[in-house]
Design a protein around this nucleic acid. Structure first.
Lengths: 161, 161
DNA sequence: GCCAAATGGTTTTATAATGCAACCACACGA
DNA sequence: TCGTGTGGTTGCATTATAAAACCATTTGGC
């Protein structure tokens, strides 16, 4: 294919997120990382993917600030891939994807795991969208607005730089 | 590339969701659909993508039960692509992606829209994960459990079919 | 009712991304 | 120090993607 079209610089935040997460493997790598996987070989075994594309993806995720490399925690000379705060911040996305499958998948009986509250062992609640004042919102209750112009110093203040 | 590896039949609900949504364009097409876009040409204009791959993606989304084709609502002989309930159910995923960008993007000033509560015009709340009893949960407060065995008729009951 | 333009695609062709397998360097353990 | 495990890289085949050209219907204007 001619070079895959990039969403970098797009004004839509969804497109910007997909620029980093929107390919075939990245979110699965992150899922494993959220479950505690850190080593190259461990990712490769759990995901069963080709090593070259795993290497490519890990590099891209590091470039996007989602993973960082760190010296191995077991004292060996190898390195580990560990989630940054930005990487851990994808957790709600993963949960949303999971809940969508749980609700709409045609063969839900093939799903083998449930995400539970560790303390009680009970399933977590379905994600809800709420207004600032707490009202439950559906798609129809929301709309897009242009972002307010960024606060900018006044001309006089700017000249003080 | 040898045929892209499919996640169909994977036990992980995240992988199953990505099987339908996890490519470069599908979620953006759905985003437009959620905003009310219905016609082929309108998708093509707003997304600026090649017509052949738009056609391919629309077909795939219809196959996955995310979109349906319907006669055009304006009385013309053309058809429209309209979201099914399964398609509208992706809304929380899109919101999660948006909020992730808003929180972690390196150039947030390039984001031009905000999602607001239509009634008040105020931004919506950040998505939260909660336990059954309402406690706020972080990643560390959750864990995966095997899905309980599906309820199955007893042998005697089954013989009554 | 007829012609031009719009709509909604398909086909063709190129190039890039993906996947597999083989290879390789270094670390580690015995 | 020798064999093995870990963590990759390098070819090569094949597919997916994209741009552009092409085409069939539908529509609008007259």
């Amino acid at each position: 294919m001619v070079k895959r079209t990039s969403f970098e610089g797009d004004a839509c935040p969804v497109a910007r997120a997909l620029e980093a997460l929107g390919d075939w493997w990245s979110l699965l790598i992150i899922r494993e990382a959220l479950l505690g996987v850190r080593r190259f070989g461990e990712f490769q075994n759990k995901l069963g993917m080709a090593k070259n594309i795993l290497a490519t993806r890990l590099r891209a995720l590091v470039d996007h600030g989602i993973l960082t490399t760190a010296p191995a925690s077991d004292g060996s000379a190898y390195q580990e891939y560990v989630l940054t705060p930005k990487g851990r911040g994808t957790f709600p996305i993963l949960v949303a994807l999971r809940q969508w499958s749980e609700e709409f998948d045609d063969y839900p009986e093939e799903i083998e795991t449930i995400l539970v509250d560790r303390a009680k062992g009970r399933p977590i609640r379905k994600i809800e969208l709420r207004a600032e004042d707490g009202r439950l919102l559906t798609l129809a209750d929301t709309t897009l607005k242009p972002r307010p112009a960024p606060r900018r110093r006044s001309a006089s203040a700017r000249s003080n730089l």
